[in-house]
Simulated scan of single mutants.
Amino acid sequence: MTTNTNTKTGTLTHTKADTLTVLVTGATGKTGRRVAGRLAERGATVRAGSRTGTTRFDWEDGGTWAPALRGADAAYVNYYPDLAAPGAAETMRTFGELAAANGVRRLTLLSGRGEPEAVRAEEALRGSGAELAVVRAAFFTQNFTEGAMAEGVAAGTIAFPAGGTAEPFVDADDLADVIVETLTADGHAGLVHELTGPRLLTFAEVAAEISRASGREVAYVPMSESEYAALLGRFGLPDPEARWLSALFAMLLDGHNASVTDGVRRVLGREPRDFTAFAAEAWGRVVTDA
């Protein structure tokens, strides 16, 4: 585990995880369950916040926030549906004020790369007075194995409004390691960590990687923004939400995020996992077991 230098003393400092109580919001999701598991392994007392769990937490029900925050030392803030969504900044401001009022001294916020509206939400939370670290992540590699896209991948198709744009896909396990570090180590307050994988890949190249690892053909099908919104509608998403989400993806994949960062290496002292290694583990095992 990487440590951080105290600029006053020159020493490397960590908070002992087994002395911490940490609220993990979205604790059943891609990142939340990974963060909760890693914190528990380190001995932290984890409040796994979710709509139906023992620690009830629902972003749409502000009445669940204070009971979940009360007595916690830190919190992982994983906002749904996205920090770029309408009203997110106001929600972050209210949540931050409540966290500070309940004695929570350290927050780590999951954000997205290249989302101007998300930056507004970051700043709203920063005004709470708690120590805030922001982690801006690229597109998750696990989106191809978990969640809405996984069904299409299993059927042999990746349909998405990305065109030929390259993306530096980041592994959610690397992301979780960074988040846990920011929650348990000193020196991250006020910092923004941008996390990517080690190289750029187009969605067509991702499909080729998955095809090689799984031994079956997976094809990338580029879609327009409106075509993708219609696809989401056929899966039951309400039209306004489908159009907003499709527009968000189209904006994120217009090329302005097509660069890699050294964020994982700077925080963890190691390189991020490459998509090829991820694909070998995710699909190679399936082929072997078959």
Rank of each mutant, 00 (worst) to 15 (best):
S211T: 07
L201K: 11
E227M: 13
S214D: 13
E205H: 04
E209I: 01
S211C: 02
E227K: 14
M223I: 09
Y220N: 09
V206K: 03
P222N: 03
S211R: 00
P222C: 01
E225F: 07
G215N: 07
S214L: 05
L201H: 15
A207Q: 02
S214A: 13
E225H: 11
E225V: 13
Y228L: 04
M223T: 14
E205N: 06
A204G: 04
V206S: 10
A208D: 12
A230D: 15
R212Y: 03
I210D: 05
R216T: 08
S214P: 06
A213H: 05
E227C: 12
A204P: 00
E225I: 04
V218H: 05
A207R: 00
A219G: 10
E205D: 11
S226E: 15
Y220Q: 08
P222K: 01
A207N: 02
P222D: 06
E225M: 10
G215S: 08
E217D: 15
Y228G: 03
F203V: 06
S224G: 09
A204C: 00
T202M: 07
E217T: 13
L201E: 12
R212I: 10
A219I: 13
A213Q: 02
V221N: 12
A229R: 12
P222F: 01
R212P: 06
A229E: 11
E209V: 09
S226V: 15
S226L: 14
A208K: 11
T202I: 09
G215H: 03
A219V: 14
L201I: 07
A204R: 06
E209P: 03
